[in-house]
Design a protein around this nucleic acid. Structure first.
Lengths: 199, 199
DNA sequence: CATATTACGTACCACTCGATATGGAAAAGA
DNA sequence: TCTTTTCCATATCGAGTGGTACGTAATATG
């Protein structure tokens, strides 16, 4: 993947560091809202360097999405490992609060790309949609397990409870993007857990 | 507000009809995603006509928001008139489904503007934020009334239950924007009502 | 009819967008 | 040292952006 030839002039900037800066820009301004000038300014490199290192804007966004998934959504995988459905929900809700209320990176990139990016490259929305869908399926599987474990008092459908929980999480991301603070999001999380239909 | 002088050449297009077309474009593509070419093509008018009739793109968007609030969010006012908190929630949830799953206008403009429009005119986000906040306060007041009426079994805070319900509604809008169909959103609504903490 | 007022249509403005061609600087191997 | 390879920087590309100047057509008032 990465060119590792030893010949020629070595790169003067750190690729990972530049990618992290690009992620922050995409996170705050969205795909279409982030111009190449915004990106290169934040990354500290010139346009040709960006194209040489990352291909183009879309490829850079995809790599930023990869980094986002690895760093910022790691809590999702850990959340699924909780012992009960309530534990999974709790982990997801409070993990989302941490991710969604950054110092300057507010909201969720997946939500941004789903709601915005309407006129953007269809392939990007498709990519984000696929990532979201795979997480959703994992959560459905975990909820089926919880149902088999007898976690839920009343009978529930795994698809239904998953889609409901995702809606709450996405709604929290929306409110965070609109300026909600941590305390207000904790209210949502506590209310959700207070009426969560399982032990 | 509107020029009603009888002198001069009369306008050849219907202002309200053109505004409705602009609303559809803004709804599907967002504020920044909707170009003047998109707008004028859909409205069937030329650029100078648009600027003469509506001022500029931002003013047109605001008037489209007004129309959106009057036509598409009328159900919110009716929802608040329900007799119980559960009735309010039910009306809001199912009303949102109707609004959010149009034939070609999917999602919620308020959610779009909150999540997207990060780099757009700050005044627009502020405007949308104010509109959302006023609806939120009305819902808080209705929930306080419901608490006083003894609607809720367990003790709840009006601010908390409001923010929770809004999160579910916003999450449904996100899922609609991502392609969820009516049946899937009905699952979310039913799940929300099934665990709703009031009679 | 004459004139004022308004709307329409074309053609264009300055600007920004994402993306590149080009030329020189720097570092490796021969 | 010489060549090759790669990187960096300037300067630009064509396309598209929101917004307008200007000339013409159409209607109402006098």
């Amino acid at each position: 993947m990465e060119k590792t030839s030893t010949r020629g002039r070595p790169r003067e900037f750190d690729t990972e560091q530049a990618l992290a800066a690009a992620l922050r820009v995409f996170w705050t301004k969205g795909y279409e809202g982030a111009s190449l000038t915004d990106l290169t300014d934040a990354m500290g490199i010139t346009r040709p360097s960006l194209y040489a290192a990352f291909g183009n804007k879309e490829a850079l966004f995809r790599k930023a999405l990869d980094l986002y998934g690895e760093e910022k959504l790691a809590y999702v995988g850990r959340a699924l490992a909780a012992e009960t459905a309530r534990g999974v929900a709790s982990n997801l809700l409070y993990g989302a609060i941490d991710t969604v209320t950054g110092d300057e990176c507010r909201g969720c990139m997946g939500v941004m790309a789903s709601v915005s990016c309407q006129s953007a490259e269809e392939s990007i929305r498709e990519d984000v949609s696929n990532r979201t869908e795979s997480s959703r399926k994992a959560l459905v599987a975990r909820m089926e397990q919880a149902i088999a474990d007898g976690d839920f008092a009343a009978p529930v459908e795994a698809e239904t409870i998953t889609r409901y929980l995702l809606a709450v999480l996405q709604g929290m991301a929306v409110q965070a993007g609109a300026g909600a603070n941590r305390e207000q999001l904790q209210q949502v999380a506590e209310a959700t857990l207070a009426i969560w239909p399982s032990r």
